[in-house]
Design a protein around this nucleic acid. Structure first.
Lengths: 347, 347
DNA sequence: CGCTATAAATGGAACGTTCCAATAAATCAA
DNA sequence: TTGATTTATTGGAACGTTCCATTTATAGCG
């Protein structure tokens, strides 16, 4: 049963009494082969326990059917949701995506990209790790392998990006907080080496200025984009002379951390302090209190990225249009009105 | 800059004025090459934008440095944690793991395995999808590719398994609930086509029998292993004539669902109904109320699985010992005493 | 029957590496 | 100097596939 050396098409050919070329044609589903012959060959394939060697095949025909998905933080459920959206599209196209995690580490990212390239991937969908150097993808571009960035972009690069409208999302969320009567606002989490950070923070600031919140009433606290980071942000903010009464968080993970820290201090998110997240991961709806968040249609973005990639491969181009996905604010319990304010805006 | 046809070692050889063999040796870091020659070759490699073709190389030297990780549900943070543990080990060994998601679908799993095999992986770490047929891995075994199962096993297979002590974990959790005075107990979630289910349920039943809870006071509700499944389980249970006062859940996702459903009905987990989860995902500690759960040392299991795999590859064997990881119960807030019971056991 | 047209199957070169055996150059011992 | 040894380098065959150009078999037609 266990064959010593692995079988090749030559073994199949011998077994079925045909030539290797015939076997190859059967493998490719060519109509040139007489059905009975094809059946015989397929039986032989089963009998010898043949495994197709894609590496050998790629040697002749160039690109493969594998696409690499390089993700900066697999433990963030947001990225798992994104991956699921992509997989749906790829599966339908008969493409298998291989996922690799960089754990937000540019060195690891380098290794992962190298390995994927050596494997001969047809394309790469990447959410770059923080601190990725601008030149990190030059080699890959030069090799003519299509790349699509998701969620994050790099400073000066012509690689297409699929991302939500971060600026608009932050504006929506900030306006919401201000309409609820909050006058001292904070922006929690993230760090300025991320373009996404500037986009979201920019929306926050713009909304503040439009609606008359002066810079002196705004508090900006950078921090890790994790629960732990969120907890730290809240502690920092509460230590201020005039602490904020509401915060827009860089993402939902930070928001969960903030809510946790509030509870530890005996406060309740929504009643004592308003919290708004960003991304609207599945958990947001099921948290206690339920988290108000900016919904970015995560799975939809994943699908979009996959479609763009397939199109690029098909038309063998390395460029494509950016896609900025629409966002919406999902208001739940965590963003109640300021208790000292008369304004009881329901929306 | 963008080279038309991709460069090969022959191009490098021409560029550096050496033979292809020399280039190959440099690529492999052989000490046989004079340092100055090596430097010259390395420069040429940079200049022509060379990408190593692992497929071609594998044609000669058999096994590659890629390992496939096949996971049945990437959106369950538990598996992300498991993956992270594995990656730590593999990275140190210079191996790149490619992760593929089967979304609990045996057909998809088949495709994914096929693709991984065609790619020539050195080994496979698999958490099999529910409903996997016993023969699904026979071809792979026959091909001599080492496989390690994690978390789940298949009915009749000699493939090594790395998993927590599910039976013991369930016993610990159930004893805990009974000591807290609960006399009507439920087991929520999971389905009987999973061996893990029988292990955990078996522990539950054993503890009940040992401590004198009759079958008539036990309620077993199968269900999806997700939040939604947990919510449904609770609804079913509360509709019973003599509803339980405590439940051991198949995993943490189910437990979160149960707690959510409790809250929707105005009950509080821990005070009105005791809930215990299984797996102890990171979120359990940060939930409200914090979830009592059976800790399985997820990342540790991942590391262990990776180590076993590396050992198997190294010693080119296809067998290895099973590993049953120790478990412990982490008591938090969700598993308070039965309110009608006098027993106030603190442990 | 001979001829062409079509269908089915085939041999061989090529793809980009590795590795063995062989060569060439440098060093050493006598 | 010569042969032996060591150090660097090299050509060529092999790996398992694809695909082009052929060959062989089958059918069609007058």
């Amino acid at each position: 049963m266990a064959s010593r050396a692995k079988a090749t098409i030559l073994d199949i050919a011998r077994e079925a009494g045909v030539s290797k070329s015939t076997v190859s044609l059967v493998l490719q589903g060519s109509g040139l082969i007489r059905p009975e012959t094809a059946t015989r060959v397929r039986k032989a394939i089963e009998d010898v326990g043949y495994v197709y060697n894609r590496g050998a095949a790629n040697l002749r025909k160039a690109h493969s059917n594998v696409i690499g998905m390089v993700i900066n933080d697999l433990t963030n459920p947001f990225f798992a949701e994104l991956a699921v959206g992509m997989e749906r599209v790829f599966q339908a196209a008969g493409v298998v995506p291989f996922i690799a995690n960089t754990a937000e580490n540019p060195v690891r990212q380098e290794e992962v990209l190298k390995s994927l390239m050596e494997q001969g991937v047809a394309g790469l969908i990447v959410s770059p790790a923080r601190g990725t150097t601008p030149g990190a993808f030059r080699r890959i571009e030069a090799a003519g392998v299509p790349i699509v960035f998701t969620m994050r972009r790099l400073p000066e690069s012509r690689i297409p990006v699929i991302a939500p409208d971060n600026h608009r999302g932050a504006v929506l969320a900030t306006e919401h907080l201000i309409r609820r009567g909050h006058r001292r606002l904070a922006f929690f989490g993230g760090s300025s080496d991320l373009i996404v950070y500037h986009q979201r923070l920019g929306g926050f600031i713009e909304a503040c200025e439009t609606l008359g919140i002066p810079a002196s009433d705004r508090l900006i606290v950078e921090g890790e984009t994790s629960r732990k980071g969120g907890m730290a942000c809240l502690e920092t903010a509460l230590a201020a002379a005039q602490p904020p009464t509401a915060a827009l968080c860089f993402n939902d993970a930070v928001a969960f951390g903030v809510m946790l820290a509030l509870r530890k201090r005996g406060f309740e998110a929504g009643a004592d302090f308003a919290v708004v997240g960003f991304d609207d991961v599945a958990e947001a709806e099921h948290y206690s209190p339920a988290l108000t968040s900016v919904a970015v249609n995560t799975a939809g973005l994943g699908e979009r990225a996959a479609h763009v990639m397939l199109k690029m491969i098909q038309s063998r181009t390395t460029r494509a249009e950016d896609h900025i996905g629409a966002v919406s604010l999902v208001v739940r319990e965590s963003s109640g009105p300021d208790r000292n304010s008369q304004v009881g805006d329901a929306a």
